[in-house]
Design a protein around this nucleic acid. Structure first.
Length: 278
DNA sequence: ATGTCTCAGTCACTGAGA
């Protein structure tokens, strides 16, 4: 199985190059973030024509997540248990949930497409929301990976955190001033990893960014950040055979500001050319 | 100069979010 994550920054603006890339790279499953539309606005036809079905969760022009798959999609959830909500000007538990998570099972793999809150700025209510959201995701991940360790489980998406100093190449993003690099955000990311998932891409791709701001020639200057990740449970991680970051997708006409991250899995019961050994 | 991009609302712009 070839499974990828991509913050597409509006699927309506980028359906052509998204599906082109999926076909070209023989992608079986794609977790998308920032589709920026409701289900009825999603350009389904282009995906179906290329042989994909799509599970979509979008509420308005903001956020929005989806999972496209060549194999049938089952057990769709549009939030993980305990996921906090947010509404500017409102506080407390009454805040509605945003379209930032969709989970589905494909060929026995439990996949989540996640768009972690941006945080906006240190001290903004959105920053607290981000940390709360990550804490709830951590609780869910710990419960899920311990309850069903045999099920390959993956958190894929835009985490809006640069965990290591080397993940930030933007001189305007500074610890003590900016989100994405603050110690509490980084601690939340490492606590999530300790809850039963591991970054399956970094061991195979130690260098490289996944996002470059549109402004100020950030891409030509390579002043990007690594903020898009595939975190897999032990059962998922042990099936990974390859991982790649597709930097070229930041080039050309109307690119997203993020590029896709692709992982190859050998699930053992696939109809492929590898010998089965019992 | 938030110097770019996208979308909604409304119809050439502004506001919001990133």
């Amino acid at each position: 199985m070839r499974i990828a994550t991509w913050n597409v920054n509006s699927i309506r603006a980028r359906v052509g190059r998204t599906v082109d890339w999926m076909v070209r790279e023989d992608v079986d499953v794609l977790a998308m973030q920032e589709i920026k539309c409701k289900p009825e606005q999603f350009p389904l036809e282009a995906f179906e024509a290329a042989g994909y079905e799509v599970a979509i969760h979008g509420l308005n022009q903001w956020n929005g997540v989806a999972i496209a798959s060549r194999s049938p999609i089952g057990e769709v959830e549009t939030a993980f248990p305990g996921m906090p909500g947010f509404l500017k000007g409102l506080e407390g538990p009454d805040q509605p949930q945003e379209a930032r998570a969709i989970g589905a099972t494909v060929d026995g793999v439990r996949v989540w497409s996640l768009y972690v809150p941006n945080g906006r700025s240190l001290g903004d209510p959105h920053y607290t929301y981000k940390l709360d959201w990550l804490a709830a995701l951590t609780d869910y991940t710990r419960a899920e990976t311990s309850a069903r360790p045999e099920v390959p489980f993956a958190l894929m998406g835009d985490f809006n955190i640069a965990p290591l100093d080397s993940d930030n190449g933007d001189p305007m993003v500074v610890e003590g001033v900016s989100t994405h690099v603050s110690p509490p955000e980084r601690a939340a990311f490492f606590t999530l990893e300790n809850a039963g998932v591991t970054d399956v891409v970094r061991p195979r791709v130690p260098e490289g960014f996944t996002y470059w701001d549109y402004k100020q020639l950030k891409f030509p200057r390579n002043e990007g950040m690594r903020i898009d990740f595939v975190l897999g449970s032990a059962a998922f991680a042990e099936a990974v055979t390859d991982a790649t970051i597709h930097r070229n997708e930041r080039k050309g006409d109307v690119p997203s500001d993020h590029v896709p991250v692709l992982v190859e899995l050998a699930l053992g019961d696939e109809d492929d050319d590898r010998p089965m050994i019992f």
